[in-house]
Write a protein that binds this DNA or RNA. Structure first.
Length: 259
DNA sequence: GCTCCTGTTGCTAC
DNA sequence: GGTAGCAACAGGAG
């Protein structure tokens, strides 16, 4: 459930709490959650000091002072927890025990979360990065026959947009999620590019207002369209839904279908 | 018309 | 709700 804005705030809060602390011990519940053997992870990380913790696309990235990197991808069902080592009862998907007694743990009812040691650096621009320009977005949409929502969700094109914010962004940009990407005119792509940044940055602001300590995602009431609690858009139009493979798309008739 | 090839969509298991 | 993987399907080239 956590998307970019939540992850951005988690990363800020976790960075404050764990930066410069020494990781003493790593526990993993399932071997399949990890891209290397547990022994290799331990050799690389145990005893190392955390340099910084940042958000990177839809993942959280822990950079250690020995240049080792551990990424945490919560997928759709993972949750980050901070607790004291004395309170660790269950074997979580991952437990990172830091010197001083704080533990960074990931719980996940579906065990979908994945952890990677030193993953290959992605060259795909983050949704909030400088590289996410109009020119870049246009080049990715050119001759693209996929539906625009699929393109926005594709982490190999833009990193950081999930279902909820894709719907919000497309509503603000007045583009139907079912529009064919390559058919969207340049002025609309320009609007879309600005909207991506606006919606995500605004969401970060709103979450900060709600809570400063947060490390766990909740359903956000400020979502205007991708929100089961709302029946109408701010302009009074009925919000429609369409589901495919269990995933729900929320939209209204205000959004132009380019096809 | 048909077959091969390719890209896209839909669905499932993690 | 995120991703990989694969089956099903659609459309174009030959």
């Amino acid at each position: 459930m956590p998307e970019l804005p939540d992850l951005e705030i988690f990363a800020e809060n976790l960075d404050k709490r764990f930066r410069n602390k020494v990781l003493e011990q790593v526990e993993i519940k399932l071997a399949k959650s990890l891209n290397v053997a547990l022994a290799e992870l331990k050799v690389n990380l145990e005893g190392q000091e955390l340099k910084s913790l940042t958000r990177n696309g839809l993942a959280i990235s822990l950079q250690f002072k020995n240049h080792a990197v551990l990424t945490v991808d919560l997928m759709s069902s993972g949750k980050i927890n901070v607790l004291r080592s004395s309170d660790v009862t269950a074997v979580n998907l991952i437990n990172l025990y830091f010197k001083g007694g704080d533990v960074l743990a990931v719980t996940d009812p579906k065990d979908l979360s994945v952890f990677k040691l030193n993953p290959i650096q992605a060259t795909v621009p983050d949704a909030l990065s400088k590289e996410m320009t109009f020119e870049y977005l246009s080049s990715m949409l050119l001759d693209n026959k996929k539906q625009i929502k699929k393109v926005l969700l594709d982490q190999k094109i833009i990193r950081g947009i999930g279902h909820a914010y894709a719907d919000e962004i497309l509503w603000y940009a007045e583009i139907s999620p079912f529009s064919i990407a390559g058919k969207i005119p340049a002025n609309q792509i320009k609007k879309l590019q600005k909207t991506i940044k606006y919606v995500l940055l605004d969401a970060i602001k709103q979450i900060k207002k709600l809570s400063t300590e947060q490390v766990a995602a909740e359903m956000h009431d400020f979502l205007l369209i991708h929100n089961p609690g709302k029946e109408k858009s701010p302009t009074g139009r009925v919000i429609k839904t369409r589901s495919k493979a269990g995933m729900m798309t929320y939209y209204t008739d205000e959004q132009v279908l380019w096809s």
